[in-house]
Design a protein around this nucleic acid. Structure first.
Lengths: 200, 200, 200, 200
DNA sequence: AATGAATGAGGTTTCATTCAT
DNA sequence: CATGAATGAAACCTCATTCAT
């Protein structure tokens, strides 16, 4: 089907990506064959290689997408005033969103991807991502300290850096135990701990 | 009458396990071949199948070992009196221990294993492990609340359940960023947050 | 009534052939993909199949073209009188011509083609070609013997048959070593050997 | 069949090499699949990769073997005295030997190999081989000139360099036309031309 | 006539496991 | 018990050809 519209191509690309995410989440990266992805996306093996360079590229792209998704919230936060409100909204966001299957798949794929590339020298990739997330939070915490909403002795930088790994721990737990309920309860308690650390 | 002594066999088993841990940590489970393990352990591919059923069994056993190691500390804690002291000692333990390479390898392997078995119905495995860890901490927190060391409104059960995933998050971070220093700094701040949550 | 002129079509055909020759020469027949040819000729994969039946057909046609080119010289020789002069002119032709890249490419493709079809029953193709070349030279040598320019004991038929393989050997050498200088020096010495064999 | 004797392994290696030569000669390098070689040698595809790194390595090794074979004659020549005798013996050798199928296969494979590697920068490989062959002949021709057997004006170096390409041309012809008779007749005439060039 | 996405057979290579020695 | 050659299924990826647009 040549001379096909840009839209068609974009849809096909997306269909393959979705299928890949699904497969990776279900069977893991290594256990997933390109044939699996082809079948799941309703195309042929060959077509996948028209749209993507390799199975690994699919893995990479899926991870990038996931990371970008995290930053969607940044814009929402800008409109709020008050650091506490922002932190609260952040947790609200975490608590509300994770219901759909697709999101769940993305988490699984993301962690597997990290483990996957933790071998080999992809240090930079990790560090950049961490830095981005840290700065994102730092702005909020700094604001809170300056306005006096938060305690003066908050270790702004250290805390901003710690925040995300702790969150990752909770998400990892979700991946393993697959209990939505337990996950939300954990987020709430984590929220409480964070506030108790920040608020005077 | 066996040709070789029990002791010899046990040592060989251990050598293979160690080699497997090393290889898995370095290259990942999938990238590691049985040949790699054979070479690293100084035996032959065939011998590995005398001592172990499959490559996957090695993976399973390695993970169990790692879990056991965590509970070594339990005995140490019993001798201390005071819940705060125990919590402090726990963090002391985390801060002191993780220096050797072998330990580091085990962490890498463990996370990969979890991701690996998060597909398929190994729910029970995870849940049992979580339960065990939770109970371990619950005893300490409960004690603290009862003696009045900790605040009355501490959510004992929820906190005990949350504690480990958060710790896992920090360890996962270590796996990716490989900075001992950053790791320790995170542990210290986490320690502080925990105390601020628990102490009146 | 055709949509495009004959001339346009002929030019397009030629462009594809040229591109194919270029690609085959650079990467070899097997390593060249139809996509390569499409890109090099500035058309699409699909178009190539409008003008040619298959990738293999391009290979065949290219070889035929090369053979034809060899016979261009025949007309030039007719105008000369004296067998020695003709032989000398032949060598002059070889010595002068092979400078352009395209010619070089054609040689490479030609040899690869021969090897390629030396499997399978294309005996006839070879034999016909050889016969044609042999006869071409035979006429000259015969003339020389008859006029007394050449020795009487020259084995006309055998020599005419041998002449071309020897020349092929030199050209093959050029293909491998790619030294224009060495190639010319060889041609000159071969010329000398030929004359010493033919002249009294 | 482990702990297998060195002899067994050597035989197996050789069997695979022979099978590969056979297949390459029959169908060409590209048309030959590893499965073909496996079947022809009576093993499995996997086994081939125990003994050889890749299909291409088989190709390389086969070519090296062929080159070595050429130099077997060197020792025979040493025992003869007189440059003319040596040259004659050389041609005797060419005329006598090429009867068996295996030899024929080797020729086919060798030419295909050369074409194959003429793309890519394997210049050195060619040059080294040419140098070796040239020097081999140079010694003989030099001797002849010094003893006065050969003409004084023989261009020793140029001739020695030219000799082999011309021979290659004849062998190439054999590959295409597969006529033993025609091949021998060509060798004889070439012999004559060589002598007429060398002898006073 | 022109395009280039689609196809799927087929290529090379890897590797967990077995088993004869 | 120890070995490592043998196996063959299966993985990823390529590409000549077709055909809907």
């Amino acid at each position: 089907m040549p001379r096909v519209s840009e839209k068609y191509k974009e849809e096909k690309r997306q269909a393959i990506l979705d299928a890949a995410a699904q497969c990776f989440a279900e069977k893991g990266y290594n256990e997933t064959t390109v044939d699996d992805i082809a079948k799941a996306s309703g195309t042929s093996k060959g077509s996948i290689y028209i749209y993507f360079k390799s199975k690994e590229e699919l893995f990479h792209l899926l991870n990038e997408k996931r990371t970008e998704k995290y930053f969607e919230i940044k814009d929402q936060l800008k409109q709020l005033d008050g650091a506490t409100k922002k932190v609260n909204h952040l947790f609200q966001y975490f608590l509300s969103g994770k219901t759909d299957e697709e999101d769940f798949n993305q988490i699984a794929v993301q962690f597997e991807f990290w483990i996957y590339i933790s071998k080999g020298d992809h240090q930079k990739l990790f560090d950049e991502r961490a830095e981005r997330f840290t700065r994102f939070l730092e702005e909020i915490i700094e604001e809170g300290v300056e306005t006096g909403e938060f305690r003066e002795d908050v270790q702004v930088s250290e805390f901003s850096r710690l925040f995300w790994p702790l969150l990752d721990g909770i998400v990892l737990h979700l991946l393993f135990h697959k209990s939505e309920e337990s996950h939300k309860s954990m987020l709430q308690l984590y929220h409480q701990m964070v506030l108790r650390y920040l608020l005077p």
